[in-house]
Amino acid sequence: MLLKRLTEASGPSGFEDEVRQIIYDEVRGVADRVYTDALGTLIAETNMGAREPKVLLTAHMDEVSLMIVAIEEQGLLRFRPNGGVDPRILVAKPVRVGAERLVGVIGSRAVHLQKPEEREQPHSLEQLFIDIGASSRMEAEKYVQPGDFAVFATEYEEIGERRAKAKSFDDRVGCAVLIETMKKRFELPVIYAFTVQEETGLRGAGPVAYRTEPDIAIAIEGTVCFDVVETPSHGQSTIQGGGPAVSVVDARTIAHTAFREHIVRVGEEQGIPVQLRRTVGGANDVGAIHLTGSGIVSAAISVPTRYIHAPAQIISLDDYENTIRLLEAVLRSIEQGGFSV
């Protein structure tokens, strides 16, 4: 099960090795050429001799994580977040530490040991630590050193009706969409890039766009979805089960109007549900890609993901499958000259 393997792998920003290897093993027999760049982005080229436009598809491999920065006398690990983590969600969560996937738990002072006024405040990072069961610094140092990373220890499971929960659907769901899409053949030069360091400032995508010089780029994301109790329509961003979401404006991009309208039209024509992402916060790799070179016509298509950046994220499997269908339909339309730059 691709989503399970991808989401349970560890991929801290800058240290995406586990995820990269899984994807490499998956795509090496499919793409014409597979290689990595200086930052570790995995690039898979298909049908490069075909008639242009050249299309770049991206999904990022990295996830938000915790970097171990110091080991306390008692063997407890101090950490700092690598990527945007709300410290309030960390307390009492299990994590996996380092390449050996050591089990650890995020602890804090028990509620009984806190003053009433302290209980009103969320735990700050300084009050949290990871406990791997070591009884001293010396013992902990046998297993862990500063610079190692911890990721959430969530298991992938299908729950409810046509939904799945896991960590890091942002953006392993995008990686899965790209892998599934690659298995189809297009009469277009299509480059699939599994990028690094998106969560720490969209750092991997710009170099890939610079290297590959695409005419058109599409990023596939897991994006904010908060269609939950008491949230007004304008605070939801996307609706789970409402289909892939096309970005309009976010913190780093104003979408190319003609291309985003084209994508929505393709969805309507093919009977694939499509929604617009209705918020301006957040960003994705398009923010770096569209400003590369002389400017690149780009779009972002996202799978709505509840509880993004938290340990247990939820997606709709229908949205996931519809994103694969929509991406194929868009590529077919480009293949047939339905959109040109």
Binding site: T41, R80, N82, G147, G201, P207, V208
Partner: peptide, 22 residues
């Protein structure tokens, strides 16, 4: 040894992502 999970706030930050990456 210094471990830095975020920006280094030095010349290293922009250099790493110049052109196709360095």
């Amino acid at each position: 040894i210094e471990v830095t999970q975020g920006p280094t706030w030095t010349d290293a930050d922009p250099i790493q992502i110049v052109q196709a990456g360095i």
